[in-house]
């Protein structure tokens, strides 16, 4: 191994190509760093902060930090996992995540990452925001209660589908996903079930209608094996489609 082009992740040597981020290189080497807003098909974003790793005493997001030779990167340490747990807990209390009532349960990346870092409880005070469900589209439904603002759909629609169906509006805690259509409804937008944007949502916010329970609970993506072995929701959706 050429040490000039590698860094160490929790002591393990990870080779990288120039231009790769820590996340790119780690994933390519089969090393898992938990993440939600990252999807290798899309430009790095760095918003969810779940992929924070420690480099030189500072926390940086692995999905945006460029790989550099000789870096010592800590990821799977108790304090970093605790930080990730707190970030996930913030995401859980910010929205309305009622797993037992969600069609996506068991195949949800938010759940799976939370399992991976050992999150047992939401810890913080719930916001219980009042949010809508948009069932206006014939094939898809959007439940805004579950949106975690990862912008994967925004980016996929813009960068892969060339459609700009989604955008983020508002600011601060009032930030929210909005839809490009005269009425703001999905059914009046250019969205189609074949869009890449329809297949990148890591949670149960953008869901196909019908067939939500075609895979029984207990046999779902993350029911038996952790996300570090199974991979992302979008990657598995991709496999299922191809």
């Amino acid at each position: 191994m050429n040490l000039a082009n590698s860094f160490r992740l929790d002591g393990r040597e990870i080779p990288f190509q120039p231009g790769q981020t820590l996340m790119d290189a780690a994933l390519a080497a089969g090393a898992y760093i938990p993440h939600l807003c990252h999807n290798p098909e899309l430009a790095p974003h760095g918003s969810c902060r779940v992929c924070v790793v420690r480099v030189g005493g500072r926390l940086v997001s692995a999905c945006t930090a460029p790989a550099a030779a000789g870096l010592e990167v800590a990821s799977d340490t108790p304090d970093i996992q605790a930080s990730r747990r707190a970030i996930l807990q913030m995401l859980f209390v910010e929205g309305n995540h009622i797993c037992p009532a969600c069609e996506k349960t068991g195949a949800c990346q938010l759940q799976a990452v939370a399992y991976y870092v050992g999150m047992l409880e939401p810890h913080f005070t719930h916001f219980f925001p009042r949010r809508d469900v948009d069932a206006s589209h014939p094939d898809y439904v959007i439940d805004f209660n579950r949106c975690i603002l990862c912008e994967l759909c925004v980016r996929a629609s813009r960068d892969l589908d060339g459609k700009h169906v989604f955008a983020i509006s508002g600011r601060g805690i009032d930030s929210r996903l909005v839809i490009e259509s005269p009425t703001g409804k999905l059914g009046d937008s250019a969205f189609a079930a074949t869009d890449r944007a329809a297949h990148v949502c890591p949670v149960g916010a953008i869901l196909p209608k019908r067939g939500a329970y075609s895979v029984p609970i207990g046999q779902r993506l993350y029911d038996r094996e952790p996300i570090s072995q199974v991979g992302d929701v979008a990657a598995n959706e991709g496999r299922a489609r191809s």
Binding site: G46, S47, C48, R49, V50, I87, M90, L91, V93, E94, F124, T125, F127, L149, I168, G170, R171, G172, I173, D174, S175
Partner: peptide, 21 residues
């Protein structure tokens, strides 16, 4: 800060509101 957080990243968006409360 709760008013001025842009809302992009989780710790600032949610953390500021939790702190304010």
């Amino acid at each position: 800060f709760a008013h001025e957080s842009c809302g992009f990243c989780t710790p600032c968006r949610v953390g500021n509101r939790l702190l304010e409360a």
